[in-house]
Amino acid sequence: MPGTIAIQAVRQVFRVRGDEDRKVHEFVALDDLHLEVGDGEFLTLVGPSGCGKSTVLDLISGLSTPTAGAVVVDGKRVTGPGLDRGVVFQQYTLLPWRTALGNIEFALEALGGLTRGERRERARDYLELVGLTDFASRYPHELSGGMKQRVAIARSLSYEPGVLLMDEPFGALDAQTRERLQEELLQIWRRTGTTIVFITHDIEEAVFLGQRVAVMSSRPGRIEAVLDIVLDRSNPEIDTRATAPFAQYRHQIWSLLRHSDTAATQLEQVHRVA
């Protein structure tokens, strides 16, 4: 299947210099991590800051390779970056010297096989998808934070990857803009059928967006639980976030995170005493 992801027994170790002893030692960021994502699925990965979410995303995108274990996308082992996977980072990823349209064309130049005219046309289509047709010739500094992220999303979708990876893409936006973009993202996902792995530390964002929410614990980073989210979204007039099931999911994840956090702190204290 084009958009399937399988993370198998992945371990990621970094060499870090300790604060106290100044010696280089190994830091286990991820340990025995398993996760499967189905084709066309929207999975959110939630966890406290520093638990290893970005590390997971880097592994799927191919920016880094795991110390042990394997990441498989569309049945093939990931060995490096590829256009079968698109990535949207938190910020600062548009080329400031290119216009909104030019930034999308940039990705299509990487794809190759298109004439200049075809690239332009396709870039326009994707700007339209994110509702920025009128801003095609604006430079990034002339766009608001929300618009910049829309362009970044359009750019990543323009080469039609099976998988879209998003690392806290709305983290730097104000609350209203964030909510609008969340809704737009869901619409885009329904229209394109792309598999999305969305990383966030915001529990509500994870519940609102995900068909499934993977909850991560830290030190070492592991998947604590995976929850199926079933919310009735048939009536657009209803504020999904204010419904009882939403609150229940939110609380459930909050408890999981809190529990794993206390466990991690206790573990750390044991280590210090020892």
């Binding site: 995108s61 920016l63 490096g80 970056p81 590829g82 256009l83 996977r85 698109g86 990535v87 980072f89 600062y92 990823t93 080329l95 940039f106 990705a107 990487a110 080469y159």
Partner: peptide, 9 residues
């Protein structure tokens, strides 16, 4: 910026 370039292969 370099990371987004690398992601594009």
């Amino acid at each position: 910026l370099l990371r987004s370039a690398r992601v594009l292969g």
